[in-house]
Measured scan of single mutants.
Amino acid sequence: RPMNAFMVWARIHRPALAKANPAANNAEISVQLGLEWNKLSEEQKKPYYDEAQKIKE
């Protein structure tokens, strides 16, 4: 299954978030990633939607 825009973004940002929160488990990191993603504007998300579309094609 191809990655969606959030997954493209999260793949880039997960390592830094995990390093900054070494005690957090994957579920907690995923929740935090979701919160951070939701704070982004549509303009900030656009490159990730574009990349996800390329992956689908």
Rank of each mutant, 00 (worst) to 15 (best):
A20F: 04
L17A: 04
S41G: 04
A20P: 01
E57D: 12
H13V: 10
A27V: 09
E57H: 12
P2C: 15
L40S: 01
E51T: 09
A10L: 09
A20I: 08
I12D: 08
A18Y: 05
E28N: 03
S30K: 09
I29W: 02
W37L: 00
L17I: 14
V8N: 05
A52V: 10
R14G: 12
W9D: 01
S30A: 13
Q32C: 09
L40V: 02
A23Q: 13
P2G: 12
N25Q: 06
S30H: 11
S41L: 04
Y49N: 03
Q53K: 13
P15E: 11
M3D: 12
A20M: 11
D50R: 09
K54Y: 06
F6N: 00
N4H: 08
L17W: 07
A24D: 02
W37H: 00
K56W: 13
P15T: 08
K19M: 11
G34S: 13
R1W: 14
L35W: 07
E43D: 12
A10H: 02
R11E: 15
N21F: 13
W37D: 00
I29R: 02
W9M: 01
L17R: 03
P15I: 11
K45N: 00
R11V: 13
E36F: 08
A20L: 11
G34N: 14
A5K: 00
Y49G: 02
E42Q: 10
E42L: 12
K56L: 14
H13G: 02
A10D: 07
Y48C: 03
E57A: 12
L17M: 11
A20S: 08
A52N: 02
V31Q: 10
P2K: 14
M3A: 12
F6E: 02
E28Y: 07
P22K: 04
A52W: 12
Y48G: 00
A23S: 14
F6M: 04
P15M: 11
A5E: 05
N38S: 13
H13Q: 09
P47K: 05
Q32Y: 08
N26G: 10
Q32V: 09
K54V: 07
A23W: 14
W9R: 01
P2F: 14
L33F: 01
N21L: 09
H13R: 13
K46W: 05
K56Y: 12
V31I: 14
A52F: 11
Q44W: 02
R14A: 11
E51P: 02
R14I: 05
Q32A: 10
Q32M: 15
E42Y: 14
E28M: 10
V8Q: 04
A27S: 10
R14M: 09
K46E: 04
E43C: 07
A20R: 09
V31T: 10
P22C: 04
A23M: 14
Y48W: 12
P2E: 15
A24T: 03
M7I: 10
A23P: 03
L33P: 01
E36G: 04
A10N: 02
I55K: 06
K54N: 07
R14P: 00
D50F: 10
N38I: 08
